[in-house]
C-alpha cells in the first residue's frame, strides 16, 4: 500500500509519531555509520521542483542516497512546463516514465493534491504555495524532540510572515497535534484576517508572543514583502519583530530558536542569535534528511517490509 504526504493538517497523531520515530531510527543508524539495507525492489523517486530550492531538494536527494533509492531530478524551467505543458500532462508523463514516487514543490497552494491525483502513486509535498510544507514540519518537530526531549506542553512561537508561510501552517499543525501550545506572532498585516481555522493564539506584540516560549520559529520575510503594502519598512519590522537577545529575555532561558531558511540575517534574526547556542537551524537541516527518509519509505510502503 502506498500513501501520500500532502498536508500536516490531514495527518493523525499516530502517523506523525510513527514518522518521527522512524526518522529518529534513521538518524541513529546513519550516525552509527549503519545505512538501511537497500530495498529488494529498485525505487526511483521523481524530484519535481517548480520553485527554487536548495536545502529541500538536496535533503531529498540525500535521503534517497541513504535509502538506496534513485532520485530523478526535474525542474520547472528546464522541463516541458516552460514550453506550455500543463501540470496535469507533466505529471501524467512522469507517471508513464515509471517513477515509483513523486516529490513535488510548486508555487500554487493545493498543487500537491493535484499531483497526487494525477500521479496516482506515492506523492510527497515538498511545499505547495502558501499552503503546507509537511516534511519541514517533521524536521522541526524532530529538532525540538532532540533538544527538548518532548513536545507536549511546550510553548511554540511562530514569528513573522504568517500570511504567506507554508511552514507556519505545517508547523502549527504538527506542534498542536503533538500537544504544544502554538502562538502566531507577527504584524496584523502579515497574519490572515480570520485565524479561527488554524490552531494557535495570535499575538501582534513580540514580547507577549515570546513570553515563556520554549521554541521560537522565525519565518523568512520575503524581499518583495519588504517593499509591498504589508510593511512600513524593513527597518521598522526589524525593530518590532526581530528575534534577538533582548527579545528573548522574556522567553524560557532554555528556549531554542529555529528558522526554516534561507535566513535574512539582521532581519528575522540577529547575528548573535543565529550563531548562538540556542540556535538549532543547522540541526533542522540535518534532521531534514532523516525525516525525508522516513517520509519516502512511509509513502512507498517500504517501512513495512512489503516491498
Amino acid at each position: 500500500m502506498n500513501r501520500n504526504l500532502l498536508a500536516m493538517r490531514h495527518l493523525d497523531v499516530d502517523d506523525i509519531q510513527y514518522l518521527l520515530a522512524m526518522a529518529q531510527m534513521h538518524k541513529d543508524n546513519v550516525e552509527a555509520g549503519d545505512y538501511p539495507a537497500p530495498p529488494s525492489v529498485r525505487r526511483s523517486v521523481g524530484l519535481l521542483f517548480f520553485e527554487n530550492s536548495t536545502r529541500t531538494r538536496v535533503s531529498f536527494e540525500k535521503a534517497c542516497h541513504y535509502l538506496g533509492y534513485q532520485p530523478v531530478n526535474f525542474s520547472g524551467d528546464g522541463s516541458s512546463m516552460s514550453k506550455g505543458e500543463t501540470l496535469r500532462d507533466t505529471i501524467f508523463t512522469l507517471k508513464h516514465e515509471r517513477l515509483d514516487a513523486l516529490v513535488m514543490r510548486h508555487r500554487s497552494s493545493g498543487a500537491a493534491n493535484l499531483a497526487a491525483e494525477y500521479f496516482g502513486g506515492p506523492t510527497v509535498n515538498a511545499g505547495d504555495g502558501q499552503h503546507e510544507h509537511p516534511t519541514q514540519a517533521l524536521s522541526d518537530a524532530l529538532t525540538v524532540l532532540s533538544r527538548k526531549g518532548q513536545i507536549e506542553g511546550l510553548n511554540v512561537a511562530i514569528v513573522g510572515d504568517i500570511l504567506h508561510s507554508r511552514v507556519a501552517r505545517s508547523d502549527a499543525w504538527i506542534f498542536s497535534k503533538l500537544g504544544a501550545h502554538v502562538r502566531f506572532v507577527g504584524p496584523n498585516t502579515l497574519v490572515p484576517s480570520v485565524m479561527s481555522g488554524l490552531p494557535g493564539s495570535v499575538h501582534y506584540d513580540l514580547k507577549e508572543g515570546l513570553d515563556g516560549a520554549d521554541v521560537v520559529i522565525c519565518l523568512r520575510l520575503q524581499r518583495e514583502r519588504m517593499k509591498g503594502p504589508h510593511l512600513s519598512s524593513s527597518r521598522e519590522y526589524t525593530k518590532l519583530y526581530q528575534v534577538n537577545r533582548a527579545a528573548l529575555r522574556v522567553a524560557n532561558p532554555e528556549a531554542i530558536v529555529m528558522h526554516p531558511g534561507p535566513m535574512n540575517r539582521g532581519v528575522e534574526l540577529d547575528d548573535a542569535t543565529a550563531d548562538g547556542p540556542q540556535c538549532a537551524v543547522l540541526e533542522q537541516v540535518t534532521n531534514g534528511i532523516f525525516v525525508r527518509m522516513a517520509a519516502l519509505q512511509w509513502a512507498l510502503g517500504d517501512d513495512r517490509g512489503d516491498a
Partner: peptide
C-alpha cells in the same frame, strides 16, 4: 473569500 478557509488553505483572500 478572505476568511477562515483562505487562511487554512493558504490561498490569497478577496475581502
Amino acid at each position: 473569500n478572505d476568511g477562515a478557509i483562505s487562511a487554512l488553505l493558504g490561498l490569497a483572500g478577496m475581502p
